[in-house]
């Protein structure tokens, strides 16, 4: 079997095991936390029978092991249960909200890469120039700024003073009105991209610095390649390996970090569903959102690992799971 296929199969097994473990951890975490899920169904001062009835309805009167078997078998049928509050099935609701969160994440992410790649490379190559230094300093300040403050400032500037974009909300008919939907994502996308590119620039710069100090670049130069030729032919492929694993982590944390940005711009995405679920103690919704986002995080990690293997042949000899 070719090395990449055996790697792929081993990595797939690891992926499946991690999904199962994540489901278990999530299940235990939510059950071990103080407070019975049934509390969401009864009012304050309910008598014991009412509480007992609510617990039967939710299933929290069963032993943990039975609850877990029930949880996993429902998962296998793509059933994440029904919300305690609206009684709507959880999975379709998540699907509806992913239609906001996924475009938001992908667009911010693309914009961040478009900003960070050239700036990070310039910051490393032209470190002795004032603009190279400036990029480094600004990105340094960027990591100290919380994402919601940038969001509020952008709202103040573009929505309140210049009136270019809406200050928040999302068209109720969603992507059926593409221009309106796109308009309402402009400021959130810029907000996330600013914060994300600040930290990406630092990684791109240090990866480029490693490339600049490498022997293979010196050898290429000695063999007669011009500086930019050597950098493009050898630098990009070598430098991209560490950056890809960072990009994977950043993509995952943007997805989950959208909670705050969705609150700033009152977007009906996955994050606001989670926040609402926590406020209303709506366990099925919280559990569903967390499971789906964990699943996405694991899939992103899988894709990042695989991409690294394809780019860097030196990694292919190594066993699955030892890439960290």
């Amino acid at each position: 079997m070719p090395a990449i296929l055996s790697y792929l199969s081993r990595r797939l097994i690891i992926l499946l095991v991690s999904i199962l473990v994540a489901a278990m951890v999530l299940f235990l975490l939510l059950r071990l936390l103080p407070g019975d899920p049934a509390n969401a169904l009864v009012s304050v001062g309910a008598d014991p029978e009412q509480i007992e009835a609510a617990r039967r309805q939710v299933g929290s009167d069963l032993p943990l092991s039975e609850q877990f078997i029930h949880f996993v078998s429902s998962l296998a049928r793509f059933d994440l249960g029904n919300s305690f509050v609206s009684h709507a099935p959880v999975l379709p609701e998540i699907g509806k909200r992913l239609a906001v969160t996924v475009p938001l994440t992908l667009m911010s992410f693309t914009l961040a890469i478009v900003i960070a790649l050239p700036l990070g490379i310039i910051a490393a190559v032209k470190a002795d120039r004032w603009y190279g230094w400036l990029i480094s300093v600004v990105s340094q300040f960027g990591i100290a700024v919380p994402v919601f403050w940038i969001g509020i400032l952008l709202v103040t500037l573009f929505a309140v003073n210049l009136r270019f974009f809406p200050s928040g909300g999302f068209p109720s008919r969603g992507w059926q009105r593409p221009e309106a939907a796109f308009d309402s994502l402009v400021l959130p996308v810029i907000t996330i991209a600013i914060v994300m590119s600040a930290s990406l620039i630092r990684y791109v710069r240090s990866a480029t610095q490693d490339v600049l100090g490498s022997d293979y670049l010196r050898t290429a130069r000695a063999l007669g390649a011009s500086f930019s030729e050597a950098l493009i032919r050898h630098g990009i492929r070598n430098g991209s390996v560490p950056v890809i694993s960072i990009i994977g982590i950043e993509l995952a944390s943007t997805l989950l970090g959208a909670v705050v940005v969705e609150r700033v711009f009152s977007l009906p995405g996955l994050g606001s569903m989670l926040l609402l679920g926590i406020e209303q103690r709506d366990y099925p919704n919280v559990q569903g959102v967390l499971f789906i986002s964990t699943l996405l995080v694991l899939l992103i990690g899988f894709a990042a690992d695989l991409t690294q293997r394809i780019i860097d042949p030196r990694l292919r000899g190594r066993a699955a799971g030892s890439s960290r």
Partner: peptide
Amino acid sequence: DILIAFPTLLLAMLIVAS
């Protein structure tokens, strides 16, 4: 590694919420 994959804020939200 699994814990680190989750952003600080999300873990903190869960703990505060519970």
